[in-house]
Design a protein around this nucleic acid. Structure first.
Length: 471
DNA sequence: AATGTGTACAACCGCTCAGTT
DNA sequence: CAACTGAGCGGTTGTACACAT
């Protein structure tokens, strides 16, 4: 990264303001003591370092009491962890670190602390900031978050696993493990992960699973796979998480750093395989996940989202609904759904006619495609309601299109996919554009338009579906 | 030179969890 | 077993700087 700002420079500029009132950050009172907020000064740092040397880490609330530092414990801990502790690595991320971050994020989502555990010398905050800025950049240029290699690897590996297992519903081991311990096995299968599987001391303990794997699993198993009951939330461990330390031994193909991705024609490759990979946040209770529409925060859906600052009408990306907690595995299997290609075909031909199980009031308890269809229908219905008048006059005889306006608003993304040749010999864009009214003026589209993410995911999903079906 | 915009970073906030009482 | 407290995590915000206009 090119930012030349350093904490040191900031601190030096603030040195003269040692123990001031914290500038614009103000301060808070703690038992009569005004706790300072805002940037730390080098003098404060020295106090904190001295304190930690004497007393060790932890008991941060005691720092203020014993050292006279007018900072709250949380602030002290953060300062120590992010800036003062030894062995911190400063400076730009290396390409290898970038690659790791991308892979890790594809696998575990916004688990910054977990990522940091696998990037020695890096802090969760640093990684988080890096990722968020990366997201914004990619969002602007309309690129998917993950390199196509990752997505393709996931697809291929999943295919291999399927073949090896011989179980139509998915990986046999996975099933057994899932049923025995109630955990969801992250069967993400990036090369680097896979090549080290035999060496891993790590047994996947986090319920997080890349939604890409779920997607692929869903495709492969024709939605007979399932997400088992999961604990309410994975307990946080106080120890450094070694769960993915095997990344350090990664032998995966090199993933170009972001800058290269964006600058040397890699973008073109991206556009040719814009299959989203889905990290997964496992908290089904607090997040109240709704399929694609409510509370997304992860790097899904073609990367076109904001990791923060949800805007009006824009979804805050989280995860597909199939990652919700369920009490019965059967609910994920029953009722059986038609083969995915049928559903896809049905959707393309007549989205609103895709049958949804009558006992499926929402996509929460059903498969990914159901969620998609449900969401598409919901989106269409809501938009139908809001723009019924204009739509009734503007819709063509293709009454089938779920949501004209939503499709319109996604036409740039269509163009993203348009060049991607599908196994059909047609580009996915051409397939989808048949039911996609174009923007009349060809103008760029607002990123905040509701439904765009849903649709971009749908596009990628359909791409995958076609690919898998015909393969 | 002034202004606007984008980027990177530091730090805060709210929430959750684990341990203790 | 509930209440409390400390700690950690992820999301968000504020700010300084770089660059473009």
């Amino acid at each position: 990264m090119s930012c030349s700002i350093s904490a040191d420079s900031k601190e030096q500029s603030a040195d003269s303001a040692l123990f001031d009132e914290g500038g614009s950050y103000g301060g808070s009172s703690n038992g009569g003591v005004v706790l300072k907020k805002g940037p730390w000064t080098s003098a404060e740092d020295a106090i904190l370092v001295d304190y930690v040397k004497k007393h060790g880490e932890g008991n941060w609330n005691a720092v203020q009491k014993h050292s006279g530092l007018s900072r709250c414990g949380k602030s002290c801990r953060l300062r120590w962890a992010n800036h003062l502790r030894p062995n911190l690595k400063k400076g730009a991320f290396t390409s290898e670190e970038e690659r790791l971050i991308i892979e890790l994020h594809a696998k575990i989502g916004n688990k910054w602390a977990r990522m940091a555990a696998n990037l020695p010398g890096r802090t969760d905050n640093e990684i988080k900031n890096y990722w968020n800025t990366r997201i914004k950049r990619r969002q602007r240029v309309g690129l998917p978050l993950y390199p196509p290699e990752l997505c393709m690897q996931a697809m291929q590996e999943n295919e291999q696993n399927l073949n090896a297992s011989g179980i139509p519903g998915g990986d046999a081991e996975c099933h057994n493990l899932l049923q025995s311990n109630g955990y969801q096995i992250p069967d993400v299968t990036f090369d680097s992960l896979n090549t080290n599987q035999g060496l891993l001391p790590y047994v996947p303990e986090f319920p997080d699973s890349s939604a890409s794997s779920l997607l692929m699993k869903g495709l492969n198993s024709q939605f007979h796979s399932f997400i088992p009951h999961m604990p309410r939330r994975q307990k946080r461990t106080r120890e450094p998480d070694e769960c993915v330390s095997w990344y350090s031994n990664s032998t995966s193909d090199h993933i170009p750093s972001l800058d290269r991705v964006q600058n040397d024609g890699y973008q073109n490759k991206m556009s040719q395989l814009a299959v989203p990979c889905f990290p997964y946040d496992p908290d089904p209770v607090t997040k109240k996940l709704l399929a694609f529409g409510v509370n997304h925060s992860h790097s899904i859906l073609n990367g076109n989202f904001s990791a923060s600052k949800p805007t009006a009408g824009a979804v805050k990306l989280e995860l597909p609904s199939l990652q919700r907690q369920e009490t019965s595995l059967d609910r994920w299997k029953s009722p059986p759904l038609p083969p995915v290609h049928e559903l896809v075909d049905s959707f393309i031909q007549s989205p609103q006619s895709v049958p949804l199980p009558s006992d499926c009031p929402s996509p929460r308890s059903s498969g990914l495609l159901e969620a998609l269809v449900y969401e598409a229908n919901s989106l269409g219905n809501s938009r139908n309601r809001s723009s019924e008048k204009s739509k009734s006059s503007s819709m063509t005889s293709h009454n089938n299109v779920t949501d004209s306006s939503a499709f319109k608003t996604s036409s740039t993304e269509f163009r993203d996919y348009h060049d991607a040749k599908s196994p059909l010999g047609n580009s996915i864009g051409s397939i989808l554009s048949e039911c996609t009214p174009r923007c009349d003026n060809g103008s760029s589209l607002d990123e905040n338009i509701p439904g765009k993410n849903q649709f971009s995911f749908l596009s990628a999903f359909l791409w995958c579906s076609c690919y898998k079906t015909l393969k």
